[in-house]
Design a protein around this nucleic acid. Sequence first.
RNA 1: GCUGACGUAGCUCAACUGGUAGAGCAGCGCUCUUGUAAAGCGCAGGUUGUCCGUUCGAGUCGGACCGUCAGCUCCA
Length: 651
Amino acid sequence: MPNDSITITFPDGSTSDYERGATGYDVAASIAEGLAREALAAEVNGEVRDLHRPLEDDATVNFLKWDDREGKSTFWHSSAHLMAEAIQAIYPEAEFGIGPPIEQGFYYDVDFQGRTVTPDDLAEIEDKMQELAKRDVPYERRAVTKDEALAYYSEEDDNPYKRELIEELDEEITFYEQGDFTDLCRGPHIPSTGPIKYAKLLNTAGAYWRGDENRNQLTRIYGITFPKKKLLDAFIERREMAKKRDHRRLGRELKLFTFDDKVGAGLPMWLPKGTRLRETLSDFLQQEQMKRGYEPVVTPHVGRLELYETSGHYPYYQESQFPPMIEDEETGEGYLLKPMNCPHHVQIYANERHSYRDLPVRLAEFGTVYRSEQSGELGGLTRVRGFTQDDAHVFCTPEQVKDEFKDVIDLALKVLGALDFDEFTAQISVRDSGDTSKYTGDAERWDRAEQAIREAADEMDLDAEEEPGEAAFYGPKLDFMVKDALGRDWQLGTVQLDYNLPERFDLEYVGADDDRHRPVMIHRAPFGSLERFIGVLIEHCGGEFPVWLAPEQVRILPVGADFLGYAEDVAPRLREADLRAKVDDSDDTVGYKIREAETQKIPFMLVVGEREEDAGTVAVRRHGEGEQSVVPVADFIEQVQSEIGAKLERS
RNA sequence: GCUGACGUAGCUCAACUGGUAGAGCAGCGCUCUUGUAAAGCGCAGGUUGUCCGUUCGAGUCGGACCGUCAGCUCCA
């Protein structure tokens, strides 16, 4: 092969030769004009690069377009630069921090030197961005030395934030320039500003420089951009849809729960319908747990301060707890509203001596705990100050850890399946291998534990990502994460290994060798907190709960007062079959009754009138489908029961 | 806790630059007695989140507090 030519391999395996130094754009153009026009960046040997960077060697090349994840994020990264240029044009005194792409758009952290940015300002910046984009100027990459870079950010553009970033860089330093704006940036970027046709700046927020609350707070501006109007419209529509699924709104509309200023922030009150939902959910889990050898316990909502001093919770998490009730100022003795159930469960374990033959001991309680979350953290049901954990603690031998983990994973999968949560991620949190000093317990035990979790996940066919450094100080854990309507991730179920508490409380069991041994403790909660779980569940199903969970499953709608009697006869038959049914005895029209039941998202509406009464049938209308079929009451009951059974048996 | 926005009837929202609050839905009453997503008429509903201040006069301006929302930080 001649020295001045290189071989490019494409994703489909085909190859082509090009002149050394040809750019990604040249290659794309040689394939198709449309590709060259739509390509936003090139993936060269797996690394995303500017389309216009020359290719110096043989390589595998894949072109990234809007539809590619990386293509989008390159587009948004370039958009962040464009926004910065617009901001600089309007506020020359602004200093820029960092401006990365995110899952949905991008942001830039800006120091406006004390100026407050209003929504009107955002509109102005937005307009400026679209104006600047129209110039269709290229994003140009330029490598600079550290000294040059530092000089630029002290002489041409005095910016301490960028200087700080540069000081810490070891790799090659590059600047990107478009129009009048130069930014320290690793890249890559799209070829030019032209494709950024539609820009929407979403909101502003304070963000600490480098995420450190002791440092300056910058103004973070969130935005999103699109190459086509249709995409922008779809984005806006999706946001509207998400708003309709917001659990706070549905909680009110479906009369599930409420918050009240007079009661306090973050303290949800469950209305009758929400309570029925909660109880159905906890009954379901309790039955599952019964089958798996869990034993129910009940413990009080407060405990002596000393208990939490021993467990370590009181000293470590003081700032997020309600203040203790001190009874004796001199000794400092008093009580604490419980922030965790585990110390109580530990004392139940310690209540009697345990043989290795007893283990595992699995103590379960729907325990309500109280935490004084920072005020800015509260939000709907997903972050509250009083919540109920579907908590259980498993005390077992180190050898049993893996099987116990497997059983909990199985339980969690069953729960997620019964609720149609098909999209969730599992995360295994392990030690930070670089800094082991902050973890309790010896390294060998940790290794074994982490390995046990990995194997358990693997053997259960659970696709889990590993997160180094995310483990708690007392042990590794496995969490289940689910997204809410706005795409935010929430941790729901959790399984955590704990070496710390058995140690602190000096727990033991007698082994086959007649010696005393330390049990391992597993904290696990498949729902996590009932409040958060239900919040996410509401958004997940948009308030249309699976039939088995619906607080009201059936509503009977007599077409007129004459048929109220028949409706009242049908209702008890349904209730005897364990269906939650209600008769609409209002004097509204049928149309109105249906509308009412539809809005309340009741799965089944049974319209009854003369025809039904005479034949002993009901006219079934399913929520959202409007379809109807007339069947005998017994058939309807059977139909619903088998639907419920099918869902709950799915594992 | 921090930054910003916001708080008017149960809900959704209106009230121009300061001139003592208005609508729809829900609720209640009466009429209608109903066949698959809103029957008609009427009535009632508010210390404009709370407190303090500026003003002849505050829903509207200022301050503090409470709460809500979006982020940041935190999350046993």
